[in-house]
């Protein structure tokens, strides 16, 4: 057992005038994840609020800002971090309480990407078929768990979260543009044709750096631009 020091962002809008950082010291095995530490804090101090569910990087509900970098707390090892470990809510979104943020803006942009197949032909009576090559096009796109680590690390999303779709939604948009079964390519591209939705991306690439699933939204955004260019000519 080692001593793990945490510094956790606390804010209860019903009680606190200002957010503050609270220090905790825990006796915890060095092989544990940040989420284990938070759960241990919760056992001592049940007023701490944070989201979590699966505990293995699949559900995407425990995106947090850990030592300045967005990550999923359940797959971030304490051993890899400098102490005290500074844990804050995801940046750029309104804080509801402690580490819980209001994701409405993020989901609104996700919805704007129309993350579902749009088919104009009569739907086949059996399944839609794809060749293995067509299916491979979706690798690196469909794995997104919508944890919002990328969009909330993106300065363009911080400044214009209402107008810029953000890396997560744009990755999803490309996931359907790249799908051989989708028939709404023109409409999808048209809808992103303004100065904000897509083009606020300045290839800062924070999204690529933080994605816990190792995805590359910047590449997807580049491919959307490429598709638009092809349509223009």
């Amino acid at each position: 057992m080692e001593t793990v020091r945490l510094s956790v962002y606390r804010y209860n809008p019903e009680k606190d005038q200002q957010p503050y950082m609270q220090e905790y010291e825990l006796a915890l095995g060095a092989d544990k994840m940040v989420l284990d530490a938070l759960k241990m804090v919760k056992a001592q101090d049940e007023s701490l609020s944070f989201r979590h569910s699966c505990g293995e990087g699949v559900c995407g509900s425990d995106g947090l800002n850990i030592n300045g970098t967005n990550a999923l707390s359940c797959v971030t090892a304490i051993a890899d971090l400098e102490q005290p470990i500074e844990i804050r809510p995801l940046p750029g979104l309104p804080v509801i309480r402690d580490l819980v943020v209001d994701m409405a803006q993020f989901y609104k942009q996700y919805r704007a990407a129309k993350p579902y197949l749009i088919v104009k032909d009569p739907e086949p009576e059996v399944e839609f078929k794809q060749t293995p090559a067509q299916r491979e096009e979706l690798d690196g796109l469909y794995e997104c768990v919508l944890c919002a680590c990328c969009s909330t690390s993106c300065p363009s999303f911080w400044w214009n979260p209402d107008k810029f779709m953000g890396p997560a939604a744009l990755l999803q948009s490309y996931r359907f543009l790249a799908d051989s079964r989708d028939q709404a390519t023109d409409e999808r591209l048209d809808e992103m044709e303004d100065a904000y939705k897509l083009y606020r991306c300045h290839t800062i690439m924070n999204c690529v750096q933080v994605c816990p699933k190792g995805l590359n939204p910047t590449r997807a955004i580049g491919k959307i631009k490429h598709m638009m260019l092809k349509q223009l000519t």
Partner: peptide, 28 residues
């Protein structure tokens, strides 16, 4: 705020590719 038309709405809208304003694309 973002168009959430039905599939048939966007079908009519999308047929006219040449009239796209392309403000974002052209400046980029």
């Amino acid at each position: 705020c973002v168009g959430r038309g039905t599939a048939s709405d966007s079908y009519r809208h999308g047929g006219d590719v040449m009239s796209r304003k392309s403000i974002g694309l052209r400046t980029w």
